[in-house]
């Protein structure tokens, strides 16, 4: 038990003194996660909502593939992106492997099916009238959908935060295509992995605690929003 306590004290010290490498890892984690889930949300949320509200042909198949996409292990996504970005791969000439862009690409693929599925879920069960009303009032299908999404914004923000939680804690992609390069692509999860491999339990806990704080922050916001929407 004292072993764990020593680790926690060391972690607090690193965070309090603002260790440069740790803070940079926080920055890389936040940046890559924010960019990837925002890009994914811009496409996946309207896509999922469209499927949910207008039930186009092939909806079931598409929802099925979104769900399958959600269960693809992150290391496999990492492999896929690696295969594309490798020197020998399709996009090899751009020298993108082991960059933040590579991590963003991987996390985009991770977040997309999650956001699509949740956006579909948030709209599919609604009374058909919610879109029919604006449609009969002369709004286009796109506009009508945006109106519904605005009403369902709590569910959408919750989906966004779920994607945030998934991507910020992601290790497989960060290691495989990020390369864990110090002050380049080292994220909080890959810092934990590295410090453990060095046998530095306390130093591994510092990014661990920061990660928990970020994830808790996201959960807290979700909780707040859902309470407000109930009120």
């Amino acid at each position: 038990m004292s072993f764990l306590w020593e680790g926690i004290k060391e972690a607090a010290r690193l965070v309090a003194t603002g260790d440069a490498a740790t803070l940079h890892a926080v920055w890389v984690s936040l940046l890559c996660t924010a960019v990837s889930i925002t890009l994914a949300a811009v496409i996946a949320v309207p896509y999922g909502a469209w499927l949910g509200l207008y039930r186009p042909r092939g909806r079931r198949t598409q929802v099925f593939f979104l769900r399958v996409g959600m269960s693809v292990p992150t290391v496999v996504i990492g492999l896929l992106v690696f295969g594309l970005l490798s020197r020998r791969g399709l996009l090899g000439s751009f020298d993108l492997l082991y960059t933040q862009i590579a991590i963003i690409a991987g996390e985009f693929l991770l977040a997309f099916p999650l956001l699509g599925t949740l956006a579909h879920g948030a709209t599919a069960e609604l009374d058909p009238e919610v879109v029919e009303t604006p449609l009969t009032l002369g709004a286009g299908r796109w506009r009508a959908m945006l109106k519904v999404l605005r009403e369902r914004r709590v569910a959408i923000v919750a989906a966004y935060l779920a994607a945030f939680g998934r991507c910020i804690t992601e290790l497989g992609i960060a290691i495989t295509v990020g390369g864990n390069l110090r002050l380049h692509t080292r994220t909080l999860p890959s810092s934990i992995q590295l410090e453990l491999s060095r046998g530095e339990f306390g130093k591994a806990l510092a990014p661990g605690i920061l990660l928990v704080l970020l994830a808790c922050g996201a959960a807290l916001i979700t909780h707040r929003l859902s309470r407000e929407s109930e009120a």
Partner: peptide, 11 residues
């Protein structure tokens, strides 16, 4: 140079 010296922290 940060771009010349890549500290990978891996096996």
């Amino acid at each position: 140079g940060a771009d010349a010296y890549l500290d990978a922290g891996q096996g």
